[in-house]
Amino acid sequence: MADAMMTADAGERAGALSRLFQGGEASTTAGPLTLSEMPVPGQINLRGNPSDAAFAEAVAKVLGCRLPVAANTVEKGGDFSLLWLGPDEWLVLTAPGAEAELSAGLVEALAGQHFAITDVTGNRALFRLSGTPAREVLAKGCSLDLHPSRFATGQCAQTLLARSGIILSQVDDAPSYDILPRRSFAEYTWRWLEDAMAEYR
């Protein structure tokens, strides 16, 4: 028995809210709004020079989608999204567990180039906020102009939500947003969102 407990399940990935929702699903609603923590996605940080054709091509080949070079945009491949974070930095979100293979593929394709592939799967939690007033809830703590003419599905941004840095990305026109706080900020961000949603109950 003791021996069994000494070995953890390597396939098991704890969400960032497992302290608040012990064993349960991290999800809450308020009127038309839903907020949920999504299963921890694979996260790969990618650095490289997008004006170097060899780099862009190699990445496109492995991921099966273009490297987003327009600021604050997202490209979608099969099972993953590629988020623009900066002029030489991207975040690849994969299905949980798919990051190792994808990383290896990228490293192999980029061999000989100057790049950085870093597994950052533990870096951030992923929350999804959905429902008509979602834009307003975010506006309580985010100074970005989220008007549909300025920030639409397929766009992303690194910004602040209240006192937490987040990656924000609009995933559909419901509207639904993916919110990725750093993992240690996850409890704060969740509580803040829950509190901001309360008025729509």
């Binding site: 003791a2 407990m5 399940d9």
Partner: peptide, 18 residues
């Protein structure tokens, strides 16, 4: 270990550490 396994590691260490 990656953060999502931090608690699993910690509990396993204590299981052995007792």
């Amino acid at each position: 270990v990656p953060a999502y396994q931090g608690m699993a590691l910690w509990e396993a260490i204590f299981a052995a550490g007792e």
